[in-house]
Amino acid sequence: MSQLPTYGEVHGPPIGEMTRRTFMRRLIGWGVGLLSLEFLAGTFAFTWPNVRGGLGGKVVLGSATDIVGASPDWATGQPYSYQKARIFLVNVPAGEALVDGKTDNVPDPKKNVLALYRKCPHLGCQIPQLCDKSHWFECLCHGSKYTILGEKRAGPAPRGMDRFPFTIENGIYVVDTGKLEDGPPIGTETFDKRTIDQMPHCAA
């Protein structure tokens, strides 16, 4: 049996260059690696939620007259809870008047409203209606407390209540629930500077 040809001193590959076999092997290796990455990315793309309608899109609330029709207290400062968008629509001038105790002669809100997301920025609980005793929003789950403008005053929440941008088209309020904006940071005090010590507790 004759000896098989092997790489000798003469035929061996120059130092620093790879053989064809090594090249092919690495090509396959990198190819499989790349394919796995693509598969992983594809998995994320495939499992990306497919949200249709409802929360996540634009929600039409109606005109100010419609809102007062649905909830007469809105004119005197009570936030209007609109569950389809999970928001409180706060009539800012009336709300401020309510907290200050001057419910007569409330100015018209016009564009001065806030669409506060009812999901507590702490751990996602639903924030209940404005507390009558303190005129604050008081989350029942973990005791975060917010003013009527959604500024945080007490509790474990990391910021004020989040809000949605809204547009007014021909007097109709439209809330874009696809674009959530972070609430004001802790320490923001544009209105209602009472502290927790001066307040009656609402949650039992």
Binding site: L55, G56, R86, G124, T177
Partner: peptide, 21 residues
């Protein structure tokens, strides 16, 4: 954070998308 929660829940809040997921 928003994206990971959106992906985890299959939407903005816990709903049908979350349940099937």
């Amino acid at each position: 954070s928003r994206e990971s929660s959106f992906w985890l829940l299959g939407g903005i809040t816990v709903d049908q998308g979350t349940l099937i997921r």
